[in-house]
Design a protein around this nucleic acid. Sequence first.
RNA 1: GGCCCGUUGGUGAAGUGGUUGAACACACAUGCCUUUCACGCAUGCAUUCAUGGGUUCAAAUCCCGUACGGGUCACCA
Length: 547
Amino acid sequence: MDKELVERLLPGLKHDVNYYENLYSKRTLDENAIVTRYAPSPTGFVHLGNLFQLYIARKMALQTKGILYLRIEDTDQERLVENGIVKIIEAVKQFGFTFDEGPINEKEEVGKYGPYIQSKRKEIYQTYAKDLLLKGLAYPDFTTKEEVDAIRKEQELSKRRIGYYGKWARSRFLSEEQIKANLDAKKPFIIRLKNQGDFNRKITVVDAIKGKLTFPEDDIDQVLIKNDGLPTYHFAHVIDDHLMHTTHVIRGDEWLSSLPIHLNLFKTLNFEPPIYAHISPLSKKEGNSIRKLSKRKDPELAVSYYHEMGIPNQTVMLYLATIANSNFEEWYLAHENENIDNFILSFNKVGTTPALFDMEKLLNLSKNILSNITALELYEQTLTWAKKYDAANALILEKNKDIAIKTLDIERNTPKKRKDFAMYSEVMPNIYYMFDELFIPQNYEWQKITSLKEIKNILDTYITKYYNENDNEEEWFNKIKNMTEALGYASNMKEYKNNPLKYKGNVADVSTVIRVALTTKSKTPNLYDIMQILGKEKIEKRFKSVK
RNA sequence: GGCCCGUUGGUGAAGUGGUUGAACACACAUGCCUUUCACGCAUGCAUUCAUGGGUUCAAAUCCCGUACGGGUCACCA
């Protein structure tokens, strides 16, 4: 196309494509280093799917001594959210993710391949569009959206393939005079690719995750530059990943069907395409059908859900690692004391089918994590969580720090660790009765022995004749056994099982009475430890409260 | 409707033509251990890899058809 006319279409560009080609020189990295990016829209919202993708990208860059950079895809000016960039960076940081290059807030950035915010790269995209225009590989299109809709309807009716291509791409045939006339009339326009592809030809790509894929060649005259002068995703993606020397594009597989578009653009621009790795979406089973996790319907997709429930970030990351590579879990179980960063992630072991999100599995991982930290750590993490989401309990935890830590420490430093908690929100409901402020002497969960008279009898006998707070655990249990015999219950479980009719009950039934009297609960951690923490005074008081 | 991808147990899955009588983990069930619960341990849980056909001495693994599921067809990313 005529140079002057091109200048009228895209005026005021200071540089040509060679300038940018030279400006963003090749990266000096190891041969196998993976350069990849996290490229969200600045909506400020981060969900599990984003995190999943980010995990894979970060891991790959790390283990090849490559680069992970952040690029903000804000070419849709209608979807901007205030402070979106900072929100994203902060949300992701909570899960331990940082970037080697990219924006650090709305104004500043680090790295030599910027700007990393697409809206600031307008000139660059336009320069490449201009180049295509000059080469006759692009053209202005003055067709209105309504007219494009009409074309689609016509194609639908006549059952033809839908899209702006071939003879349907009317503006492709505009003469320079017609273009000038439209410009004189100040008609708005967009710039489209003059596609050289042929739908009847096939292209094959090897995706790092999905393997070999075959598509028809793209022949749609894709929009390159929109009405507002900003590029479409497709065009921006190709320019950016070329100029930023991305080696691997890791993204959701909803992009799979636009892969021919991107490959075609790389070819038209004479760029070497990156390696693509398309990740299957996190999904969920609803009835008999499987669907992608959705922001609207599934609260567990939002990262904030985990924070509110008090599920540690570490759990979320561990879960994502287990679904990223199925051999991770085995590795993890075999290398308990190793940093999980030592695991080598590989693209070809990433699942090709949608991973069904399994909350139960995630909670199980969480139980393991929370059972392996110290009581102090658990106390502090729970307190931090409670301060934000459960203020009343936070006060009680702070006031009773000593009791709380001792209680959380029960059966923690033993080979047979308890796995009581999957989330911080479960801590207080499980141990509240240890705090006088929360202990209410009602709704006792009596089990086998329910007669108040017998209960009182057991408690009185125990406290007056048997209990001694200085006993060690063995002495303590022997005394319970002695009392059990004296009151006509079996102290030996095996014997009881052989002759259940000989006894009123067994030592477990008697212990349960003491347990319930002290906590109102039938399920608690080790009773001896609980009694040690409560102390004689409280034990007597609680026994008396039983009515 | 066009194009593309997929389909192994309740779940995530291992598996790429022959020690697979289908690994491992979660869930579930039963039993043992135990002062309760939990933990732990033991055992059980797909005569079969959506389905029909084909190739082969041999197929979950290769080929074709069918069914079902998913993705995508914007001046959104």
